[in-house]
Each structure stands twice: as C-alpha cells, then as structure tokens.
Amino acid sequence: MSQALTQDDVKRIARLARIEIDDAQAQATQAQLNAIFDLIATMQAVNTDGIAPMAHAQEVYQRLRDDDVTETDRHAAFQSVAPAVENGLYLVPKVIE
C-alpha cells in the first residue's frame, strides 16, 4: 500500500480537491507528499484486527433539535460578502449539464 505516489496520483488528487497544479508544482508536491506518506506508513503495519474505529472523541449520541423554524431572512447581510450576486442569486460561471 505504501508504494510511492506517482505524478499521476498527485494530479488526480489535486483534481479531486479542485486545486490547479502545474507539472513543476506536481513534481515538488509529489516529493513532499511521499515524505509524509513515509511517515504515515509506520501506522500501516499495526495489527488492528477486531478494533472498532474511533470516529469521535466522545461516546455519546446525536442530540436532536425540535422541528421549529428559528431562522429569519438574512440574505442581504450574507450576500454583502459574496463575490458575485444578482437578484438575490449567487452567480457562477455557466453550469453545463
């Protein structure tokens, strides 16, 4: 599992994360990520059979909220910090389906 990441791996995950990366950056990143994954690799030899994964720092259950409407319209305040809005809508480059 801990075979080194290839350039293609780096580009694939940059793509997944929507981060533009050029070849030179991909190369530098590849070296850094591989050093980090070498560090991580020590974890993989550990026998964890039968160990329940720990997703939270506490063993409690989700609290439930009553089904009440508590929010008011604040779109003007929220949209005052938006990069592009018109008629109450956030604008993005044309989405092609």
Binding site: M43, V46, T48, I51, A52, P53, M54, A55
Partner: peptide, 10 residues
C-alpha cells in the same frame, strides 16, 4: 482512514 481510526482507539 479506517486504520487510523482504529489506532486512534488504541
């Protein structure tokens, strides 16, 4: 990810 969560418990 899963392996890390298990060791987190350890």
């Amino acid at each position: 990810y899963l392996q890390a969560q298990k060791i987190r418990r350890l």
